[in-house]
Structures are given as structure tokens and as C-alpha cells.
Computed example of a mutant assay.
Amino acid sequence: MHVQIPVTVHQARLGPQEFQVVRPAQPPRRALLLDEGPYLNAYVDQAAARLLAGLWSLAATSPRSLIHVPLRPNGAGSPEPGSRPLDLVLLHHSLQFAPSRWKELRGRLGPGRRRSVSAPASEPEIDHEALHHAENRNRFHQHLHAETLFMTGSAKVFRESAGHFREVARHGPAHVRDATRRGHYCARLHPGDTRTREIHIEYSDSWPDVPA
């Protein structure tokens, strides 16, 4: 089963190399990605969680593209003092793109071409134990550059981790609205590497600065 995602596709050249950047045609309206010291926290509503799940899956099937998700300028609430809002870029490790070149590449992107792309709507079962094996190569590598979090990994790790966002989209709304529960629903994306920070993905249906 697949889902269709409206995107814009951008082409830009840096020296002799040409890169393709894919962005959602409509960035998520109720989503924030924050660098909060030792933690990376993502706050999403149901629509944003579904979109991010699709984009995460798209990264698994698009090894020659950078998947750019603009999150900072969407006006979704005001971060707490000490929080650093971030955009997100997902890319396959074989692309070998240096995050230090992102600011220049981003500045060369035009309006892009509108397209609808297909991404898997389900994910394989995750082998959590294998993530911690020393020889495991299916791990994320993180870099922060130009107010952007870069998540670099294999197709396998993108396919598997997309499920965290689907889980939040599927269970978050009912959980937080159930008066008998604590009102908090989240998933944790464990990178499986002590040098890479865990991403805490929390469902939120309270976005006071964003029109309904």
C-alpha cells in the first residue's frame, strides 16, 4: 500500500554537481522540531505526523534526493527560551552530501516543479536489538548546520523509523483526549549510536498561534 504526497522538486548546481531537493508542497502547519540541549524534540499534530511518516518513507526510496522539510517558519507556537527551532533534511548516506554546503544549496533553490510522489504506507517490523549491535550499519548519523538537522542513513533505517510517526498519528489523538489517561503520547526514535541523539516525537493538538 502506498500514499501520494504532493511535493515540489528543485534542481540546483554546486560547482560540477547537480542536486535534487524534494520538499512537501505544503509544509506541515502544526509541527516543531526543537534542539533543547541534550534532547531533540518533535511536536506534531496528526496531519503533520502522517506527512512526516510519508516523507521518511520517501527518503528510503529516493537515494539521490535530499528531502527538505521546512519547519522553522511555520509559526506553530513560540519555543521555550533555550530552544532552537530546526528544519529537517533526510538523505541517503550514498549521496555523500556535506551539510556544510547546505546553506549555499538552499540559497540556489527556485520555486521547483509540482509533482505527486508515491511512498510506502507501511513499514517492516523493527529489530530493536540489532540496532545496538556494534557491526550494525543501519544507523542514523546526525549533523546540525544552518539551523537544520540532517538525518543521514540507509534505506532500511528510513523505512523502519517512519513507523514512529505513523504510531503517533494513529494513537496520539485518542490518547490525549481520553480523560482517564495522562494526556501525553509520544514515540522515541532511538538512533542506536551514543553519538547520535534520540528524537522524542510527541503528539500535540494544542497550537494556539496557528489557525484551525
Rank of each mutant, 00 (worst) to 15 (best):
4 Q>I: 07
6 P>E: 11
7 V>L: 08
8 T>N: 02
8 T>F: 08
10 H>P: 08
17 Q>Y: 03
19 F>P: 00
26 Q>G: 02
27 P>E: 03
27 P>K: 01
32 L>N: 05
37 G>R: 04
40 L>S: 04
44 V>R: 04
47 A>K: 11
54 G>W: 09
54 G>I: 09
57 S>Y: 07
57 S>I: 05
58 L>N: 08
61 T>F: 02
63 P>T: 01
64 R>A: 15
67 I>A: 02
68 H>C: 04
69 V>S: 07
70 P>R: 02
76 A>K: 05
80 E>V: 10
82 G>Y: 00
85 P>D: 09
89 V>Q: 08
96 Q>V: 14
98 A>P: 08
101 R>S: 09
102 W>H: 01
106 R>T: 01
107 G>T: 00
107 G>S: 05
108 R>N: 06
110 G>A: 05
110 G>I: 00
121 A>D: 13
122 S>T: 15
124 P>G: 13
126 I>S: 11
129 E>W: 12
135 E>P: 00
137 R>N: 05
138 N>S: 08
140 F>H: 12
142 Q>P: 06
148 T>P: 00
150 F>P: 12
165 F>E: 08
168 V>P: 12
169 A>N: 06
170 R>Q: 13
171 H>R: 15
177 R>C: 08
177 R>E: 15
182 R>W: 15
183 G>H: 09
187 A>F: 03
193 D>S: 11
195 R>P: 03
196 T>K: 06
199 I>G: 04
206 S>K: 14
207 W>K: 04
209 D>C: 02
210 V>P: 11
